[in-house]
């Protein structure tokens, strides 16, 4: 019976596991289930390929974000400056 439960995986579930696999956070059981599903399902296999491509692109783009600290700092700066400017405009 256990073998059967390993095989039961809908395409929607498989697609989610694909995403999880891109971040290398699938458990062994999930890995086996996904592999089995991809073996049978052409559509999901293509999807898996595209997903991998997307990961590659994301890696290649080498995006960087401002840290939340820097953002907080920027926000405060804008806030104070904004209120200053609007006060000046009121005076005028």
């Amino acid at each position: 019976m256990k073998g059967i439960s390993l095989m039961k995986l809908s395409c929607a579930e498989a697609a989610e596991l694909c995403t999880k696999a891109e971040y290398k956070e699938t458990s062994l059981r999930e890995k086996i289930r996904l592999k089995l599903h991809l073996y049978f399902c052409r559509t999901c296999k293509d999807y898996h390929k595209n997903n991998k491509k997307l990961s590659g692109l994301l890696k290649k783009a080498d995006l960087k974000t401002c840290s939340s600290q820097e953002k907080e700092h920027l926000k405060n700066k804008i806030k104070s400056e904004h209120s200053q400017i609007s006060q000046q405009q009121k005076k005028q």
Partner: peptide, 10 residues
Amino acid sequence: PDKWVDRYAD
């Protein structure tokens, strides 16, 4: 302006 950082900072 209050949404600038969240929307465009990155």
